[in-house]
Design a protein around this nucleic acid. Sequence first.
DNA 1: AATTGACAATTTTCGTATTAATGTCAGACA
DNA 2: TGTCTGACATTAATACGAAAATTGTCAATT
Lengths: 184, 184
Amino acid sequence: MALNRSKEERALDGATEVFTRYGYARTTMGDIAVKAGMSRPALYLVFPDKEAAFNRVIAHMDQRKLTEIAAVLSTLPNLESKLLHACLAWGLHGVELAAMHPDAADLFDLRFPAVRQVYANFQALVTELISDAVTNSHLEATPADLARVLVYGLRGLREAASDPDDMRRLVTTHVLSFAKAISA
Amino acid sequence: MALNRSKEERALDGATEVFTRYGYARTTMGDIAVKAGMSRPALYLVFPDKEAAFNRVIAHMDQRKLTEIAAVLSTLPNLESKLLHACLAWGLHGVELAAMHPDAADLFDLRFPAVRQVYANFQALVTELISDAVTNSHLEATPADLARVLVYGLRGLREAASDPDDMRRLVTTHVLSFAKAISA
DNA sequence: AATTGACAATTTTCGTATTAATGTCAGACA
DNA sequence: TGTCTGACATTAATACGAAAATTGTCAATT
């Protein structure tokens, strides 16, 4: 049994695959159970309910992405390149997912507590990154407010961008002008 | 008849009032006709169809707002204060309207060509404002892209802001950091 | 102890009847 | 004569009961 993945792993992976492909509304616990190779009641032994499954999936994906980003950040030399990489990696993630699975739009709905948490987490990362620089800049705003502006600004760009390449250009412009403002 | 407003005026004003209160989907041509004090067929002599009426209303409100903004801009001394006033006046307009009439959310739906035009117009205004400064800054982006980032960044802030006062704070932070970036 | 078939409760979907809204035009009106 | 409207056909939204699907639970099984 050591070679087989645990039922928790299979449940989480199955849920991740189905949710990211079809979004929240259009996936059923039955779909997930089939993907995970278990019965539907067995799934309820792993997740209390559908919403909890969704929260776990979002939180897990976010944790992976943030860890991945943090690992790269430590290799980068300055604030500008750190911010740029963080925002490109994080901001493009959603756009690429949406381009791959247009049905999964509700994965980014801020009405989900898990989605708001994703934004809060990234905002915390950005706040940490820019705190030192902000105190030296002549801006009156707090690092937290500046991070909020940067992060939700990224969200606004999603509506302007026509495709991932365009999004990349816009994010780069956004981040570099932001970095310049707080580095001055 | 000189004292009475023309039917075109009454139609436009009536349409403006009803659309801004109930949004596009929940207003009927009948509602507008009543407000405008004319029969429904008479309304069709002014507007070809409902969508045209909506476009006219959005375009007219936008024209008024942009004219109003432009008048103030000419009295302001520098780029920073001009940008700040423009973005506060323009960006808060929608938030305040939405706070007043929550049913009218679809007034800002980018699927409406008229709404996209509103963004394009403001983007053009911002591009014009910042063009000189950008050429002196060390940013590689074009004024048009920078304006796009600023304008759609404002849109993103709407989802972060909890109320008009919070929105005001966020917009101010956004604009001031932006202004600093292109003024350096 | 772990799992599931089967169940009640709830939600979604579907077909259909009904109502409402849109856009048009012949004819009424001034 | 030119402006306007009552009445109409067409299309779209709504209401609603029946059917199907989904959720969450538990007694029974392995």
